[in-house]
Amino acid sequence: SSQSQGISSSSTSTMPNSSQSSHSSSGTLSSLETVSTQELYSIPEDQEPEDQEPEEPTPAPWARLWALQDGFANLECVNDNYWFGRDKSCEYCFDEPLLKRTDKYRTYSKKHFRIFREVGPKNSYIAYIEDHSGNGTFVNTELVGKGKRRPLNNNSEIALSLSRNKVFVFFDLTVDDQSVYPKALRDEYIMSKTLGSGACGEVKLAFERKTCKKVAIKIISKRKFAIGSAREADPALNVETEIEILKKLNHPCIIKIKNFFDAEDYYIVLELMEGGELFDKVVGNKRLKEATCKLYFYQMLLAVQYLHENGIIHRDLKPENVLLSSQEEDCLIKITDFGHSKILGETSLMRTLCGTPTYLAPEVLVSVGTAGYNRAVDCWSLGVILFICLSGYPPFSEHRTQVSLKDQITSGKYNFIPEVWAEVSEKALDLVKKLLVVDPKARFTTEEALRHPWLQDEDMKRKFQDLLSEENESTALPQVLAQPSTSRKRPREGEAEGAETTKRPAVCAAVL
């Protein structure tokens, strides 16, 4: 046999249950609850290399294929790409003598399909299967379609040439079993990697079954959420508030809700932002270029202005709740996480202390139980975000031990490091100062900020419009641009040419 590394010779191994799959997660993409704000000051410096380099560890398999027929071997997927077919160049070659004697062998292509993985959001991997055969590759009886790919989820059954000719079961060793999710959700989405997690739940990458488009699904544990919100009269209202707010909003710089499922837990389906959180971008770069800050901040102002015009105060604006559309420097941003939002009543007064301390406005800290506050709290938070983006460190921090965090904020005395700000323009610093004003009545509004000289930049605004146009074009394009080929190089076993392929839609398939 010419099988590559990772293939075992026996096809009769006992199949494990899916609970053996491991679970991976990374930083929070968007969480309903406010958790302790991640610290920006503690960015690790590059460490000196050791005298002796450690040995390379043996790579762990990321997936496993269990053979369902004699003549096929099990495969431990270690590499990122595997070709399957009769050709000797394939990493998994159909060359077992037992297999060659079967009637089905002649229906398999020289290069029938490939399984591979690509880097997705949060640097996690996504597994795909890609059909290159004349007679078809099927996943859970659905045709992939020649020249098309679809994501592979845990426990997928792979069939060759005929939908009933099941050859492998695919085990993704990095994700959960699909069966743990409600059927209504599974009918519409293929669940994938964990993108982030918080005290009350997690955010998962998923794929729409009909279109193969990526989405983010925010899962909120009702049990954990009820415990964490025990002081509230009705904890469920917080989730329902977020859903109702998101459904009503329609702005290019605000995250869109696509679906909602109320089962044992809450499942909020949101558009996916491939670039992750602004927080991670700031930490990764230490600070952002001023031109990049301007492009992002302009969009934040437009989003918050839209919220305020619609009578909504976000109340928890922070870099973790600003998501980026891509890994590119120039990209769209979207505001997310409306769990603490407040729809303005007639009095415009709110007395609930919520939000993240580092970003809270002075009037929030001094008015607990005594007075109210209004939309100006969001403008203060925007000032803190702009400060961080321009400088790479927070204006107020618990680690300045000589003054408490509350006193720093209520006095408006931010930590100004001259040598850092020497590289920032006077106009940018002036806008920061106009937003970090203790008196909410004297603080800049979103309208005033948008009129500030720093943002009178036609090149930046043109760039934003171009990015918007690109997004609109990409969302308007159909996901499947061509029909699967019906040509046949070899006959199917026991049926006429093209008899099955043309009847089945290529579900969740995307043209390369």
Results as ranks from 00 to 15, higher is better:
residue 243 I to E: 14
residue 245 I to R: 01
residue 245 I to W: 07
residue 246 L to Y: 00
residue 248 K to G: 04
residue 249 L to T: 02
residue 250 N to T: 05
residue 251 H to R: 08
residue 252 P to N: 14
residue 252 P to Q: 05
residue 253 C to D: 03
residue 253 C to M: 14
residue 253 C to W: 02
residue 253 C to I: 13
residue 254 I to L: 11
residue 254 I to F: 10
residue 255 I to A: 09
residue 257 I to Q: 05
residue 257 I to C: 06
residue 257 I to W: 07
residue 258 K to C: 09
residue 258 K to Y: 05
residue 260 F to N: 11
residue 260 F to C: 15
residue 261 F to I: 07
residue 261 F to C: 08
residue 262 D to S: 11
residue 263 A to W: 12
residue 263 A to Q: 05
residue 263 A to C: 06
residue 267 Y to C: 07
residue 269 V to M: 04
residue 271 E to K: 12
residue 271 E to P: 13
residue 273 M to T: 10
residue 277 E to R: 03
residue 277 E to C: 03
residue 278 L to T: 02
residue 278 L to K: 01
residue 279 F to W: 10
residue 279 F to N: 04
residue 280 D to M: 08
residue 280 D to H: 04
residue 282 V to D: 01
residue 282 V to E: 03
residue 282 V to L: 12
residue 283 V to Q: 04
residue 283 V to R: 07
residue 283 V to P: 01
residue 284 G to Y: 10
residue 285 N to Y: 14
residue 285 N to D: 12
residue 286 K to F: 10
residue 287 R to P: 10
residue 287 R to M: 10
residue 290 E to N: 13
residue 291 A to T: 08
residue 293 C to F: 11
residue 293 C to I: 12
residue 294 K to D: 08
residue 295 L to M: 13
residue 295 L to V: 08
residue 295 L to A: 10
residue 297 F to Y: 13
residue 299 Q to C: 06
residue 299 Q to I: 02
residue 300 M to C: 12
residue 301 L to A: 12
residue 302 L to V: 08
residue 302 L to G: 01
residue 303 A to G: 06
residue 303 A to L: 01
residue 305 Q to P: 01
residue 305 Q to R: 10
residue 306 Y to N: 04
residue 306 Y to S: 14
residue 307 L to P: 03
residue 309 E to T: 11
residue 310 N to Y: 15
residue 310 N to D: 11
residue 310 N to G: 04
residue 311 G to P: 05
residue 314 H to Q: 06
residue 315 R to K: 00
residue 315 R to Q: 03
residue 315 R to A: 14
residue 315 R to D: 04
residue 315 R to P: 03
residue 316 D to Q: 03
residue 317 L to V: 10
residue 317 L to A: 05
residue 317 L to F: 05
residue 317 L to T: 00
residue 318 K to Y: 04
residue 320 E to Y: 05
residue 320 E to T: 05
residue 322 V to K: 08
residue 322 V to Y: 00
residue 323 L to G: 01
residue 324 L to P: 03
residue 324 L to T: 07
residue 326 S to Q: 02
residue 327 Q to K: 05
residue 329 E to A: 13
residue 329 E to Q: 12
residue 331 C to D: 02
residue 332 L to W: 05
residue 332 L to M: 00
residue 333 I to Q: 00
residue 333 I to G: 00
residue 334 K to M: 12
residue 335 I to W: 01
residue 336 T to S: 07
residue 338 F to G: 03
residue 340 H to R: 03
residue 342 K to A: 00
residue 343 I to L: 09
residue 343 I to W: 15
residue 344 L to R: 12
residue 344 L to H: 01
residue 344 L to E: 04
residue 345 G to Y: 04
residue 345 G to V: 07
residue 346 E to G: 14
residue 346 E to A: 13
residue 346 E to F: 05
residue 347 T to A: 10
residue 348 S to P: 15
residue 350 M to H: 00
residue 351 R to T: 03
residue 351 R to M: 06
residue 352 T to Y: 01
residue 352 T to P: 02
residue 352 T to R: 02
residue 353 L to T: 15
residue 353 L to K: 15
residue 354 C to H: 03
residue 355 G to Q: 03
residue 355 G to C: 02
residue 356 T to M: 02
residue 358 T to C: 13
residue 358 T to L: 12
residue 358 T to V: 11
residue 359 Y to N: 03
residue 364 V to F: 14
residue 364 V to H: 14
residue 365 L to F: 14
residue 366 V to K: 04
residue 366 V to I: 10
residue 366 V to M: 04
residue 368 V to E: 04
residue 368 V to K: 03
residue 370 T to Q: 10
residue 370 T to D: 09
residue 370 T to Y: 01
residue 370 T to C: 08
residue 372 G to D: 15
residue 372 G to P: 10
residue 373 Y to C: 03
residue 374 N to T: 07
residue 375 R to L: 12
residue 376 A to V: 12
residue 378 D to A: 01
residue 379 C to S: 12
residue 379 C to I: 02
residue 379 C to N: 05
residue 381 S to Y: 01
residue 382 L to F: 04
residue 382 L to S: 09
residue 382 L to Y: 02
residue 382 L to K: 03
residue 383 G to E: 01
residue 387 F to V: 04
residue 389 C to L: 05
residue 390 L to V: 07
residue 392 G to C: 15
residue 398 E to G: 09
residue 399 H to E: 00
residue 405 L to R: 04
residue 405 L to S: 05
residue 405 L to N: 12
residue 405 L to F: 02
residue 405 L to W: 13
residue 407 D to W: 07
residue 409 I to T: 01
residue 409 I to F: 06
residue 412 G to D: 03
residue 413 K to G: 04
residue 414 Y to S: 04
residue 415 N to K: 14
residue 415 N to A: 05
residue 415 N to M: 08
residue 416 F to A: 07
residue 417 I to L: 14
residue 420 V to P: 13
residue 420 V to S: 12
residue 422 A to R: 14
residue 422 A to V: 11
residue 422 A to P: 00
residue 426 E to V: 11
residue 428 A to G: 11
residue 429 L to A: 14
residue 429 L to R: 08
residue 430 D to V: 15
residue 433 K to R: 10
residue 434 K to P: 00
residue 434 K to S: 10
residue 434 K to Q: 03
residue 434 K to E: 13
residue 435 L to C: 00
residue 438 V to D: 00
residue 440 P to Q: 05
residue 441 K to N: 12
residue 442 A to R: 03
residue 444 F to W: 12
residue 444 F to Q: 05
residue 446 T to R: 01
residue 447 E to R: 08
residue 447 E to P: 11
residue 450 L to D: 03
residue 452 H to I: 00
residue 453 P to T: 04
residue 454 W to C: 02
residue 456 Q to R: 09
residue 459 D to A: 08
residue 460 M to I: 09
residue 461 K to S: 05
residue 462 R to G: 07
residue 462 R to V: 00
residue 463 K to L: 08
residue 464 F to P: 01
residue 468 L to N: 05
residue 471 E to K: 03
residue 472 N to G: 12
residue 473 E to N: 09
residue 476 A to P: 15
residue 476 A to F: 09
residue 476 A to T: 13
residue 478 P to A: 03
residue 479 Q to I: 00
residue 479 Q to L: 08
residue 480 V to F: 12
residue 480 V to M: 03
residue 480 V to N: 13
residue 484 P to H: 08
residue 484 P to R: 00
residue 488 R to C: 13
residue 488 R to Q: 07
residue 490 R to V: 09
residue 493 E to V: 07
residue 494 G to Q: 14
residue 498 G to D: 12
residue 501 T to I: 14
residue 502 T to M: 08
residue 503 K to C: 12
residue 504 R to K: 05
residue 506 A to P: 14
residue 507 V to D: 04
residue 509 A to E: 10
residue 510 A to Y: 01
residue 511 V to T: 12
residue 512 L to M: 13
residue 512 L to C: 01
residue 512 L to A: 09
residue 512 L to E: 13
